Simulated scan of single mutants.
Amino acid sequence: MSHELNLTDEELLRYSRQILLPSWDLEAQQRLKSSQVVILGAGGLGCPVSETLARAGVGAIHLIDDDHIEASNLQRQTLFTAADIGKNKAKTACQALQKINPHVQLTYAEQRLTADNAAEILLVAQAQQSSTPFLILDCTDNFAARERLNEISVQYQLPLLSASAIAMSGQLALYEPAKQSGCYHCVFGDSIASGSDEAVEDTRNCSNSGVLASTTTVMGNLQANAALQYLGLSINPLAGQLLIWDGQRMSQHKLRYRQDKQCPVCANS
């Protein structure tokens, strides 16, 4: 059964440069219009990725963030201005995105992800997604939230596109638990549990270690690039691979991973 939605004349004009691409087409744009994303985090990563997805024509975006805008956020959180200081990030981002593209359905939750509410607030659109492209985007800055997102992703067999950004570097991976190809815990769980250098690295965030303004914008748009291909073309350009971007050296490379057969999260899913 087709889940595609017809594009209006205004939408055809708005998205015409995408539709002209040989690797894209009208069908891909229609799939994008029917797609839904849930984004956890409306900060340095959440702002650029949600803006690009809204401009590109994703059908529905649900933003989750209980944090409020501070002056130090304005250096990199591109949807906010000085007049927004003190306001909720998710709500303010949705208001900005609505002005950018009124064709996108925008909703938000002013909540912090916990073990008790994770399923409820992450799956707000899941009841409708059985026949439409759906993706969870991890734009958080702490390991506990990423692990919780990963557990929900595996439990409900939902794809998870996870990005991180710190200083002048970032990482990106798109996990598909339904394919049993590995999850976030498969890649990072052992190093964090063992207290290795990678674990120390993961405890850093923008608040305690700093980040260049361009780092979050680059990583947010790399995340958007992967999301658009997954939603519009049903392609995972990072299947089984962790992308590592180094802004200081202006380089990037990918590392292959596979499912840990002893993973406590996904091995028996």
Rank of each mutant, 00 (worst) to 15 (best):
A178C: 03
A165V: 13
E110P: 13
Y184L: 01
T114V: 14
N101W: 14
L174A: 07
L113D: 07
L158Y: 11
L172K: 07
M168N: 10
L113Y: 09
L160R: 01
N117I: 13
S131M: 04
E151H: 04
Y108I: 14
Q126L: 04
D141Q: 06
A167E: 08
D190V: 01
Q155C: 02
P159L: 08
S164E: 00
Q157N: 11
V104G: 08
H185A: 00
A193Q: 05
T107Y: 15
L172P: 14
D138T: 11
A145C: 09
S162E: 01
S169R: 15
C139F: 03
F134D: 04
Q129N: 13
S181E: 04
Q180K: 09
Q98G: 10
H103C: 12
Q180E: 04
L149V: 09
A115G: 10
G170H: 00
I100H: 11
G170P: 05
F188I: 14
Y175N: 00
V187F: 02
F188A: 03
D116R: 15
Q180I: 02
P102T: 08
A109W: 13
V154N: 02
A118N: 07
E151A: 08
I192Y: 06
E151G: 13
C183V: 08
G195Q: 03
Q180G: 08
R148F: 09
V187A: 00
L149S: 02
E151R: 11
N101C: 07
V124M: 08
A165K: 09
A119N: 06
M168C: 13
L160G: 02
L149Q: 03
M168V: 04
E120I: 12
P159K: 06
S153G: 03
L161W: 10
Q105H: 13
L161Y: 11
K179C: 00
A167L: 08
Q171E: 04
A125K: 15
R148H: 14
L122C: 10
S194I: 00
D141G: 03
M168A: 06
A119M: 04
T140G: 08
G182L: 00
S191E: 04
M168T: 08
S194H: 04
I100R: 11
N150I: 01
Y156S: 05
S169C: 10
R148Q: 10
A167H: 05
F134R: 09
T132A: 10
A165W: 13
A145I: 05
C183Y: 09
S162C: 04
R146V: 00
Q128C: 14
R148W: 05
A115N: 07
L174D: 11
F143A: 02
R112M: 09
A109E: 12
P133W: 06
S191H: 04
L106G: 15
F143D: 02
N117S: 06
F143C: 03
N142Y: 12
E110H: 10
L106D: 15
D190F: 02
A125V: 09
F188S: 01
Q105E: 08
S153R: 09
Q171I: 00
